[in-house]
Simulated scan of single mutants.
Amino acid sequence: MKKIILLALALWSAQLAFAQSNRTKAEVFIEVEDRGAFTVYLDNEFVGSTNGRFRFYDVYNASPTLSIVQGNKKIYSGRINVRPDERIVFSYSIRQGLRQTKELNLYRNRQYALDDFDDYAGAYNTGIVSPTRPGNTNVANFENLAAMVKKEAFDDAKTNVILAYTTNNRLYTDQLATLLQGFTTDDKKLSLAKSLWPLIGDPQQYFSLANSFTFMNTKDEFLNFIKNNPSSRQARGMDVVTFEQLRNQIKRESFDDNKTKLLQVTFQSSALSTAQLAELLKLYSFEDKALACAKLAYPYIADPQRYFTLKDVFTFKSNQDALLDFLRRQQ
């Protein structure tokens, strides 16, 4: 009995260590081959879909419970094993059960490397390409900074080094995300992220820093902070790379309200085109939520003369008419 208790404690400690490290999250993707509407649960998180693909991006439990529900009937339940910094892809059918089909590394060349389901993305398998930066960003200086931050044992000391660096050097979102990986607590990361908001070199990409936080309430506080503290710099059009990052992040959100919250943050620093907004609105589950977001976006749109074309995003005539009525009232 004593051996069993010690083994259980060891397993619990391993899972706790997995969960506490920002660098050790995993992803779990499941494809259900059978037709129909399914809901997939991974521990307490769930995703519903009718297209058969289910994505869990932030998995910290090393041995979560996977359950598949069709209607009100649970058709599969069991524990799976995941490894840090990997995406595990599963396939399920009622006939063949659950099968693991792929293991993919999340990062290559220090960049997120995967497409939206089961393969590596991009010509160099790096996924997200860093945006072009104006001027000389002095890579050597940042490498020195990263090395100095890594040597510091405590978050406060790391913060002091980073803030001192920004006195004479520009810092970018992806660089800050790299530095935050070494932090221990969400509250220290959040405090630093708020401090650097007026100084960051690419405010149009700052929304993506939300992925650096472990807990949902911290992520929400970060996004609300940006939304309530507009950048003093003039908003500019969103480039293709940044838009792809935003679109992928919107796709990860399970609820329409969270999609809108994320978009409201981007309005502070980026002027979306009508075509870009249309693509994002198509990711919504409910048209009334998409319509509400379209109205919020109007003051920030880069080409308001094309705003009327959003009518084609909506299926229901009532929503089409509501959009056009809204536009007429803006005159």
Rank of each mutant, 00 (worst) to 15 (best):
M1N: 12
K3Y: 10
W12C: 04
W12S: 03
S21N: 14
N22L: 03
K25C: 05
V28L: 04
E33L: 11
D34C: 12
D43K: 04
V47M: 03
V47R: 09
G48Y: 08
N51V: 11
G52R: 11
G52F: 08
Y57M: 06
T65C: 02
I68K: 02
G71P: 02
N72T: 09
Y76N: 01
G78E: 00
N81Y: 10
V82H: 10
R83Q: 12
D85W: 05
I88V: 13
S91F: 08
I94G: 07
G97C: 05
R99Q: 11
R99T: 10
Q100S: 11
K102P: 02
L104V: 10
R110N: 14
Y112A: 02
A113V: 14
D115T: 09
D116M: 04
D119H: 14
A121N: 09
A123L: 14
I128C: 01
T137I: 15
T137P: 07
N138C: 09
N138R: 14
N138Q: 11
E143A: 10
L145W: 03
A147Y: 13
A153T: 13
A157L: 13
T159L: 03
T159F: 08
V161G: 04
I162A: 02
L163K: 10
L163T: 11
N169I: 07
Q175T: 04
A177S: 11
A177P: 00
T178M: 07
L179V: 12
F183D: 01
L190D: 00
L192Y: 06
A193R: 05
A193F: 03
L199I: 13
I200S: 00
Q205K: 05
L209P: 00
N211V: 06
N211T: 11
S212V: 04
F213A: 03
N217M: 10
N217G: 02
K219Y: 04
L223A: 01
F225L: 00
N229S: 11
N229M: 03
R233N: 12
Q234E: 11
G237T: 12
V240E: 08
V241E: 06
F243K: 07
F243V: 06
L246T: 06
E253M: 14
D256S: 03
D257Q: 13
K259N: 02
K261S: 03
V265Q: 01
F267C: 00
T274K: 03
T274L: 02
A278C: 08
L281R: 06
E287L: 07
E287A: 07
A290T: 08
A290I: 09
Y300W: 09
A302R: 04
F308A: 14
F308H: 12
L310K: 05
T315Q: 04
T315E: 06
F316V: 11
S318I: 12
Q320A: 13
Q320T: 08
L323W: 13
D325F: 07
F326I: 07
F326A: 05
Q331I: 15
